[in-house]
Nucleic acid binder design. Structure first.
Lengths: 185, 185
DNA sequence: ACTAGAATATATCACTCTGATATATGCTAT
DNA sequence: ATAGCATATATCAGAGTGATATATTCTAGT
């Protein structure tokens, strides 16, 4: 799924500017699925217009910088439908939190406890955000998607709350001689 | 977490070649946490050696290409410990499957059903792989990590099995006039 | 016995993406 | 006042991806 397809997906939900597309991936319905940056969105939109998959309408705004609002074209809808039927790439996860947890014995315990607190809060915030969506008029598959998110985040938060006590028996590297001394054999 | 830190983490678990490091991210304990490619691992290892964070021993093998086995140094351990105490970047997830599910009403239902079958199988395979790990001698935090994975993948597989029937009521785009016609308003 | 393909092993490269920065304006809270 | 946040687009160095090249051995099918 390249940035162009991601943008087409958002435009399929409604006309939007580059800035608004970014927000969908940051706080909107797609925020737990994919991430993108302006550096990929703006070039992607330019190429979509070049290829006739989207059209751009410049909207002069008073009191705000001008907006470029993009709309998907019939050709764009066809391209999106085709992309959705490609074999999906396997999920790509990059989690600093899980990496740190895997090597948690190398980290002072208070730091680890703080990270777990933050993680549980993040799960709770995310769940609140999902529940705030009005999914009643969503398609069945989008509702399946939302329910999967709810299920997974709920299970993760509960697991951490119920099992974090396991860390109590873990030795923490002493900071007396700095972290280097603590992890040296 | 850049590629250098990821490599240091694997080397902390034991000496390894670039090829073996890749396998840890592909099939090993870190396979659901992070992904990397040879294009990032080999340059990262070269820089680790340059910076004195790892040393390289060339092992001529008969019947196989030569191996370059890398070992973490005390300075490398210190660098890893320091990196683990940085503020973790938020999780970065890129899931073609979830993106397609979100736009599932644009895709023929048999295709969607097949994707869900594959997804459930993938969860089951992953769970089997986690259970195959001998976690008894792992640190408490690594066990917490493994348990979190087990919990999340189990919950996801069960949710999909129990709720996929929701798709039965969903209209599928007819393919008579190609996908473009089906999604045109 | 032959052969196609997978596994082991390192390396490179065009392309894409990230994260930071630049630019400009208005709104809001201290 | 003024610092900081939100809106809005754009660019770019550096990092990473996915494919490809090279070379050998092992394995499975015909």
């Amino acid at each position: 799924m390249d940035a162009r397809t991601l943008c087409l997906g958002v435009l399929q939900l409604g006309d939007a500017s580059g800035y608004e597309i970014k927000k969908v991936f940051e706080e909107g319905v797609l925020s737990h699925i994919y991430e993108t940056s302006f550096g990929s969105i703006y070039p992607a939109l330019n190429r979509l217009v070049e290829d006739g998959l989207a059209i751009c309408t410049e909207m002069p705004q008073d009191k705000r910088p001008d907006k470029k609002v993009y709309s998907i074209t019939p050709a764009g809808r066809a391209a999106l439908a085709a992309a959705l039927q490609q074999v999906p790439a396997p999920d790509r996860i990059r989690s600093d939190f899980l990496f740190i947890l895997m090597f948690g014995h190398l980290v002072p315990r208070p730091h680890l406890e703080r990270l777990i607190d933050q993680r549980i809060n993040w799960y709770r915030d995310t769940l609140a955000r999902i529940d705030k969506c009005d999914t009643a008029n969503w398609s069945a598959s989008a509702q399946l998607f939302a329910g999967l998110g709810r299920t997974v985040f709920t299970a993760a938060a509960e697991y951490l709350e119920q099992n974090r006590h396991l860390l109590e028996q873990q030795e923490s590297p002493t900071d007396r001689n700095g972290p280097a001394a603590a992890v040296a054999e």
